[in-house]
Simulated scan of single mutants.
Amino acid sequence: MVKVTLTVNGRTVSGECDDRTLLVHFIREKLGLTGTHVGCDTTQCGACVVHMDGKSVKSCSILAVQAAGSSVTTIEGIAAQGELHPVQAAFKEHHGLQCGFCTPGMVMTAVDMINRHGGKLDEATVRHQLEGNICRCTGYHNIVKAVLAADAEMAAGRQAAE
């Protein structure tokens, strides 16, 4: 067993795990943050996407010991106190979810995409960037609409703040 210490959603946390424990399992089982989903354990579905040091990663492809010392944000950590993150709100408003299994990974991927390309997203870019996330319910149309709406809203908010 090894002790792993990292910052999760702004809080320093520690836990012991086997050196082969995947970050997704550490997050869910040791920290009790079950919003990050386990879909395939092979990086194919994107249900396990979290942000590590500010970039989206598939947490089923990273060992917990590799994440030691990193800053990790899960779906539970992106919203402000009592309010949905703009991407979460857009998914709700534009019906970008059905069963909800893929939603945390889709939202985390979208937040990273908007952070990197904010205000400059188009449908083709969004569809390309979401290729690593699988949804079996919505056919992606409403997910893409939600990401584009959140991008426009967040860009307008940034411009108003300047």
Rank of each mutant, 00 (worst) to 15 (best):
T73C: 02
S61D: 11
H85E: 08
H51N: 08
G77M: 02
L22F: 14
G39W: 10
G15Y: 02
G69N: 12
F26Y: 14
A47W: 07
H51S: 04
E83T: 10
E29T: 04
S56W: 03
E83G: 00
V49C: 12
A89F: 05
S61H: 00
H25K: 13
F26T: 05
K58Y: 08
S61A: 15
D19Q: 13
V13Q: 14
A64F: 13
I62L: 15
C40L: 10
H37A: 06
I75A: 14
V24I: 09
S71C: 05
V24Q: 05
G54D: 09
V50N: 03
H25S: 12
T36K: 03
G54M: 05
K58G: 05
G46P: 05
S61M: 09
L23A: 09
V24L: 10
G77S: 01
A47K: 08
R20D: 15
M52Y: 11
T43H: 02
I75P: 08
G54R: 04
K30E: 15
G39R: 06
S71T: 12
A80D: 12
A47S: 14
E16C: 04
V50G: 07
L23F: 08
C48A: 03
G69V: 11
V57Y: 01
T43G: 05
P86M: 11
C45Y: 05
G46V: 13
E83L: 05
R28Q: 09
I62M: 14
A47P: 10
V65R: 13
A90W: 09
T42G: 11
A68D: 08
S14N: 01
A47L: 13
G82M: 07
K58P: 01
G82V: 07
G54A: 12
V38M: 04
Q44Y: 02
A67M: 06
L63Y: 15
E76K: 00
E83M: 08
I27W: 03
S14T: 10
A47M: 14
G39E: 11
V49I: 15
A90L: 11
L31N: 11
L23P: 06
H25M: 13
A80V: 00
M52R: 14
V65T: 15
R20T: 13
E83D: 04
S61R: 05
D41M: 10
Q44I: 07
H25T: 09
S59Y: 10
L63I: 08
F26E: 05
K58A: 11
H37C: 01
K58R: 15
D53Q: 13
F26N: 04
S56P: 09
